[in-house]
Each structure stands twice: as C-alpha cells, then as structure tokens.
Amino acid sequence: MTRPFWIRLVANPRAAFGLVWLGLVVLAALAAPLIAQADPFAITGSPFARPFGESGLGTDSLGRSVWSGLVFGARTTLLIAVIATLSAVAFGGLVGALAGFYGGRIDDLLMRLTEFFQTIPSFIFAILLVAMLSPSATSVVVAIATVSWPPIARVVRGEVLTLRSREFVQAAITLGERDAAILLRQILPNALSPLIVTGSLLVATAILTESALSFLGLGAPNLMSWGFMVGAGRSFLRDAWWLVAIPGVAILLTVLSINLVGEALNDALNPRLRTP
C-alpha cells in the first residue's frame, strides 16, 4: 500500500537534489588527497590567480590552491559538524529520555538545566567556550555540542512522555521489563523519526557554527575549513571575489541540501502527513 521509505524520499525532487550535492561533498571529503594533490596550506603558484583558469579554482593571497582548500575544508567542516551533532544527540537524547521517562523531580531538574543552556545565546556561548578551552578541533566540537543539545533533549522528552503512557509500554511494565530495556526496546525505536529529523537539521546548524567560529579565527588551527577560507579572503573581497564566494557558496549549498533532506525526511517519516 505505502511505497518503501527510500523511494518516497528520493521521489521528492528537492530531496534528490540535496542528496546528490551531499553525496558529492562527502565523496570529495573522503577522496581529498586523491583529487587535490596539493596540501591546502602549500603555496602552489602565484597569488591571486583567477579561477577557472589554469590553476583550477584560483589561488589566494599567498598562492595556495582554493580547490585544495575547498576539498580539505569539506573534510574538516563535515567531520566537526557530524561528530558535534552525534555527541549532542547522544547527550540530549539521554537527558530527554531520562526526564520524560521518570518525570517528577528528575524531569524538573533536567529540564531547568536544559532551559538554562537555552537562555544563553548559542553562538556567543560557543565563542566563549572555544576561547576558554583554547582553539582546537576538540574544543570546537565540544562548543558546538554544548550549544546544540537542548533542542534534542526537548524533542526526545516530548516523544518519551507520549510514548510512556502508551499501552504497549504499560504492557512491558506489567511483563516485568526493566526500565533500561523499556527505554531501549520499546520507547526509543518509536521515537527515532523525530530524532533523525532534528539531528539532520542540527548538522546544518553545526556547519554554520563551525564556519562562523573559523571565520573569527577560533576554528581548529592547522586545519583548513570553509569558514577559515571566507575569513581569510574577506580583506580581498574587492580584488579577489572568488576567495569568499567559492567557500561561501559551498557552505550555502551544503546547508541548504541538509535542510532539504531533513525536511524530506520529516515528510517521509511523519505519519500525519503521509499520503502514500
């Protein structure tokens, strides 16, 4: 009666565009050393070479290859965004599940904690964290995860709250199932869809935060990233537009693709909108 999930997802043209672009970015990140010979920090030619000429996508003020930067930058940006999101999902999911499942005082405590984190403007908080921890790849991941777990906790708590009162969970209680098993076997599998959707959209936010941090010079040193390229190129905006435009467009397309895929996932997974 209903078409398989993957077919429904790919049949959506916007999701298909998003998936194709994301696939290309992931492929480029994985194969970076093969498709870009030069180290992104190595000087490969004369500075300010125009793009689409003999030097690929051009060079920056020091003569470093923009193409290399783009490809290795994809590596950094994606890796940091995905790890940060996974940590946020794990931590936020745990907090939300405990709060929703046990309710009462535990819920009050955990949710007030969540709200405390939510009241701080997230980007300023992230800057603060990186500055305190000294800039490194790890501290960027920690900073992004710290500012992005609260929405996950809220989504999971809401799902767990409704699922906990469902009869199949009560049946598991009456069979003598342990709390951890009820959470893992009965509740979480049924709360996965909203978690996947929120999580995928969070990757987009994480990319933006990472880029913004790198732009401010708070990114991981010694690692090329898209935000760093935009930051480094901004002083030559009028002479060498491509230094900002190329990584900027890469960020734009990637974030857009993730949002499109996330929305399509939501449509495909959300039973209320499901019109097979």
């Binding site: 009869e167 199949f168 009560q170 049946a171 009456t174 069979l175 599998p189």
Partner: peptide
C-alpha cells in the same frame, strides 16, 4: 497479567509479533 483496551496502541509497532509474545516468558 492484563489485556489492554486499545489493540492499536497496546502492541509495539516496531517489534515482531513473536517477540512481543515471547518477551514475557524470556523475562
């Protein structure tokens, strides 16, 4: 043991029928 009211809410949609029934005995 209990038989619940709503047969559409009382079975975990992501668990096979065999697992649903066998779980109690395993526990």
């Amino acid at each position: 043991q209990m038989v619940f009211q709503d047969p559409f809410a009382s079975l975990n949609p992501r668990t096979s029928v065999g697992d649903i029934i066998a779980r109690g005995a395993i526990l």
